[in-house]
């Protein structure tokens, strides 16, 4: 992606997140039961939804990779999952803070969404050791795609089963007895959601660009110095398909 479009993307993201947080802190009213701490909802929930969506997007890229054999899809699957795993860390941290504030403990086992998210996170965390353990690039890509597809199907199953296992389900923020979120909270939430979604997209685009650039750099290096064959560059070991991705 060209640098101007990346810059535009980054500016839009910063503006949306800035606007979202400004709305949440200065305009949206405090929630009646939980007060100020409930505002972490505007960060925690979008992060969680986007992380899960990113895992599913990774699975879709993986399907395309297996169907076409084009390493660029594998790279997209890798970057999607990678960004979502990072978001996942933020989800677990913000979730723990929220749990501490509203239930007095850093971790609660009877909140099915949080527990399900932890299980999904643990599964996707194994994506890295899996890639590290397969030296052959092409095979690494195929195996990683098989994993991404299986894990993508696992996500909804896991949420369903963990939710079934709860004897008591905490009230959902979106569907309370009196009809869900009031309008101004929805506005705050949607702006934050758009901001976090753009953040995910921007990070994915940045990493894709960085990978393409380093692949191009190592191609140029190889062309300059035919004798030095180890042109893989830093961090290329689990970077899928960097050697043969068109820029």
């Amino acid at each position: 992606m060209n640098p101007n479009r990346l810059r535009t993307l980054a500016i839009i993201t910063a503006a949306l997140i800035g606007a979202g947080f400004a709305l949440v802190f200065f305009w949206v009213p405090n929630e009646a039961d939980q007060g100020f701490i409930q505002k972490i909802f505007y960060l925690h929930v979008p992060l969680a939804i986007i992380a899960l969506a990113g895992f599913v997007i990774g699975g879709i890229h993986a399907i395309r990779h297996l169907r076409t054999g084009d390493p660029v899809h594998d790279m997209r699957a890798y970057v999607s999952i990678h960004t979502s795993v990072i978001f996942g860390v933020a989800v677990l941290i913000t979730g723990a803070i929220w749990a501490k504030a509203s239930w007095g403990r850093w971790w609660v086992w009877d909140e099915p969404t949080l527990v399900s998210f932890l299980i999904v996170f643990l599964l996707y965390a194994t994506y890295y050791p899996l890639r590290y353990a397969i030296p052959d690039r092409e095979r690494q890509g195929r195996y990683a795609s098989v994993f991404a597809i299986a894990a993508g199907a696992f996500v909804p199953l896991n949420f369903m089963v963990v939710r079934m296992a709860q004897s008591l389900v905490h009230p959902r923020t979106f569907a309370t007895a009196d009809g869900g979120l009031p309008g101004d909270m929805w506005v705050g939430f949607l702006v934050c959601f758009a901001g976090i979604a753009m953040l995910w997209l921007t990070l994915v685009c940045f990493e894709m660009t960085a990978k393409r650039t380093s692949a191009q750099l190592s191609r140029l290096r190889r062309a300059l110095d035919g004798t030095a064959r180890a042109g893989g560059g830093v961090g290329a070991r689990i970077a899928p398909g960097t050697a043969n991705v068109p820029s």
Partner: peptide
């Protein structure tokens, strides 16, 4: 088919088998 055979299997399977 990976280089860390006995490690990778349980590592992936355990979370996958949670449901």
């Amino acid at each position: 088919n990976s280089t860390a055979r006995d490690l990778i299997g349980p590592l992936i399977l355990l979370p996958l088998l949670v449901p």
